[in-house]
Design a protein around this nucleic acid. Structure first.
Lengths: 79, 79
DNA sequence: CTTTTTTTACCGCCATAGCAGTAAATTTGA
DNA sequence: TCAAATTTACTGCTATGGCGGTAAAAAAAG
């Protein structure tokens, strides 16, 4: 399973857990319904900002990790 | 400091640590030099795939985190 | 079963991300 | 100091992401 398939799955699982339809999630995130569908389908070329809007609604954080980053930086925890 | 400023900073720090110029990083990632500059400047509307290409070169991993996923991690942790 | 809801899919349109080229600022380092 | 390297900053162009509308599958509810 590819990374973005996993991203798609993670989003779908969280959306279901939140008891939201794709349309509801899109509206809450302030994006078009097409994007939610595309992301859950595994589209790789979505805008990072758009993805973040959706992840925020679902309370999913993006964390950057690397050998250099001992303290992991959470980059979408606020705003 | 905004989230994406942090992302910009993380990328710059890793790029410097790898001793790469923006142009070299762009070429290694297979993207245009403009994008590397824009991201390090804090541009919020970069494509997720483009960002991933750059992060990959710098050996930075994107990790999704949420209460739901954390529980899963803890459950599966000591297998 | 039938009806309702949700998902999948496709459509044209618009806004813009990404591109190379260029050149000016800035930094580096010899 | 001063030349080279790098970064910053524009440009016009092309490709495409995101949009709502629509409607057919698919799933859920009754």
């Amino acid at each position: 399973m590819s990374e973005l398939k996993e991203l798609a799955t993670v989003i779908r699982i969280h959306r279901k857990a939140a008891n939201l339809t794709q349309l509801q999630l899109a509206e809450l995130a302030g994006v078009g319904k097409t994007v939610v569908f595309d992301i859950e389908k595994g589209k790789e070329t979505v805008k990072f900002l758009t993805l973040k809007k959706i992840l925020k609604v679902l309370n999913i954080e993006i964390q950057l990790r690397s050998p250099l980053l001992d303290n992991q930086l959470i980059i979408n925890e606020k705003s």
